[in-house]
Design a protein around this nucleic acid. Structure first.
Lengths: 131, 131
DNA sequence: ATTATGTTATATTATGGGTATAACAAAGGA
DNA sequence: TCCTTTGTTATACCCATAATATAACATAAT
């Protein structure tokens, strides 16, 4: 029916859970502007079939994405990109993750400037066509 | 025998694995300069007892920390802080984690400047007494 | 000798991830 | 009206991992 914009690829050898891989690829897809606000994601059954995984695995990914404020689940349209702008909650999550991540870097003598450069480099990939 | 510098506290209600909690607290301890190069960590049995967990859980944490280049395991002295400076490997790990983390932030309209400020804030906590 | 260290082995329990069916209500299309 | 598709829920099963519980071993310090 509709052309699927997001190319989801699952690595079965990864130590990362499949439903987490789905989440991350969708989130990165939004950040890179491949998928936009209002766009519909493939249905749980369709994505499960094309990715070669179970329906419930997709459903779990979608449920968490809804919980985290990235999509809206509609019984008729399916999963639709709908971003809430709860920056405070997101910043708290980022702070916790960053605390460990930067501690590791700090132990290995990675400088503040190197981290800033890394942040800029990634941000440049995401902000294509925006602002 | 020796006063334990690191106060390890395990949250049994956390969704984070216990051995990961141990890793992170030790890494943050190194970054905050609470533990320094050459310092000895409590033995697997001692830390297991004081933290109220099993010996093998501590052993797993130590084994991974050794694998990641944070400590050295000596049959006589026990676990000793010994940092290898493999910045390249660490930067690769950071890049992967950052990619997802910044994508989330980017979706929620968190600006590049806000991330930089967050990085600086955390770095200031870690660099106390250094440089 | 005794103690304490890391290390290895085996076994058990509990939890979470993933799969396999199945069924339901709601909405849309033919 | 009938059929399809949507999310949603429930149940059951398998498997990998986390965590525990003992036990034993070689090595090194006291």
């Amino acid at each position: 029916m509709k052309s699927d914009k997001v190319l989801i690829e699952v690595d079965f050898n990864s130590d990362e859970a499949i439903y987490v891989q789905l989440q991350n690829q969708i989130i990165v897809g939004i950040a890179m502007d491949t998928i936009r606000e209002g766009d519909a994601l493939p249905s749980v059954r369709r994505l499960a079939e094309t990715a070669g995984i179970n329906m419930h695995t997709v459903n779990k990914a979608y449920t968490v994405l809804k919980q985290e404020g990235f999509i809206r689940l509609d019984k008729r349209k399916g999963a639709v990109i709908a971003l809430d702008m709860d920056k405070a909650r997101t910043l708290l999550q980022m702070r916790e993750q960053m605390r460990v991540l930067l501690a590791k870097g700090c132990c290995k003598n990675i400088s503040r400037e190197e981290v800033h450069a890394l942040v800029d480099e990634i941000f440049d990939e995401y902000r294509k066509g925006k602002v």
